[in-house]
Design a protein around this nucleic acid. Structure first.
Lengths: 197, 197
DNA sequence: TCGGGTGATTTAACACCGTTAACTGACCAC
DNA sequence: GTGGTCAGTTAACGGTGTTAAATCACCCGA
């Protein structure tokens, strides 16, 4: 009878083991090197077992992507609780995104289909991404209470600048050190939030 | 004896045919669908023939990428000849980049490894990309004659904002129409160049 | 104890991929 | 005719995502 209780748990362990392994391979060898068979080898199973937990590689990538957005959501929420000043809020949220991209680049890559990571499921269909967007829009609204359309535009601009800088920093990291890029990023985002006033 | 003259020409034709076919497939089915065999079928040759012209798929992609940067270079040069006002120059250059991304998305995608396009050759090692960067930096310098390091930073910022917005517009094009995004892009770039004063 | 069923896991296969080696066949010079 | 060169082919290798079929251990009723 204990099997009934142990099975679901070990099933959850296997599932998270697959995700963990995929991320580990991606971190070390890049997303292009991540294959179902390689994951299966690492968790000491045969390839079809992976399909017991994820219907396709695409769905596995989507899951990791959503994990990333959930993480971002929690961090953003933390910031919003911590600070009341809207300018400070938006700036700190920006810094969180930088830190996240820097510390877990493989997740950030799959979130935005960068660096060989490619998930065919459209990112904007992700519920978690929508929720993150909503949170940031609220933060902007508490700054400048304008109509929805204006907030949408500002959010689009914020994400363009933030993600654009992060993406370019990752692309050129061998030419321009990440510390240098971070300096520019902080300056850029500081200016962005300042100009919202 | 005419073979000596015809061969190189038809060779050049075959070469450009491969590039043309690769772009056509990418445009219709996405870069993920571009395979050597599919290209070979389209030009009615067998797969190994492609390797007579390109040592690897990576090098083929790199070639298309460089073609894109050369095109951008010529367009930028045209703008620089056309206008003398530095602010106008930089703004028009930005618009050219938007137009290019919009009209030849498959080339833009491979230039920045977006949307399933993946070329392992680092983009910053491309001579043509460096030249485009140099040109834009000159345009910025003619605007604000500062030290090299400052110009580098400004160029990095310009590319972050410009490419960041373009990339996000392409990513969300089913959610937010490209016309809407273009409006925001123009406004963003206009503000960027204005703030350089 | 036997047989049957069940569920987890594996092997085998399919159709594709990039890439390379070996082969074919046509032409041209001697 | 024979040898050589060159364009182009087929065949193969090891890899990919994915699925169907086979295996194998286990438990349960007869």
């Amino acid at each position: 009878m204990e099997t009934i209780e142990r099975k679901p748990r070990s099933r959850e362990q296997a599932r998270s083991g697959i995700i963990k392994t995929a991320k580990a391979i991606a971190r070390q060898e890049g997303w292009q090197a991540v294959s179902i068979r390689k994951i299966a080898d690492a968790i000491e199973y045969s390839a079809p077992i992976v399909y017991e937990y994820f219907d396709s590689k695409d769905i596995l990538l989507d899951e990791i992507r959503n994990e990333g957005f959930r993480h971002l959501y929690q961090e953003y929420e933390r910031i919003l609780k911590l600070y009341r000043d809207p300018e400070k809020r938006l700036y700190e949220i920006s810094l969180v995104q930088w830190e996240f991209a820097r510390q877990q680049p493989e997740i950030y890559q799959v979130m935005y289909n960068m660096d060989g990571a490619f998930c065919t499921i459209p990112v904007y269909q992700s519920e978690t991404m929508q929720e993150v967007s909503r949170l940031v829009r609220e933060a902007i609204f508490s700054f400048i209470p304008k109509a929805d359309e204006s907030i949408r535009r500002l959010h689009f601009q914020w994400l363009s600048v933030s993600h654009g800088t992060i993406m370019l920093a990752m692309l050129l990291k061998d030419e321009q050190s990440l510390d240098q890029s971070e300096q520019i990023y902080r300056e850029t985002m500081r200016r962005f939030v300042r100009e919202l006033r």
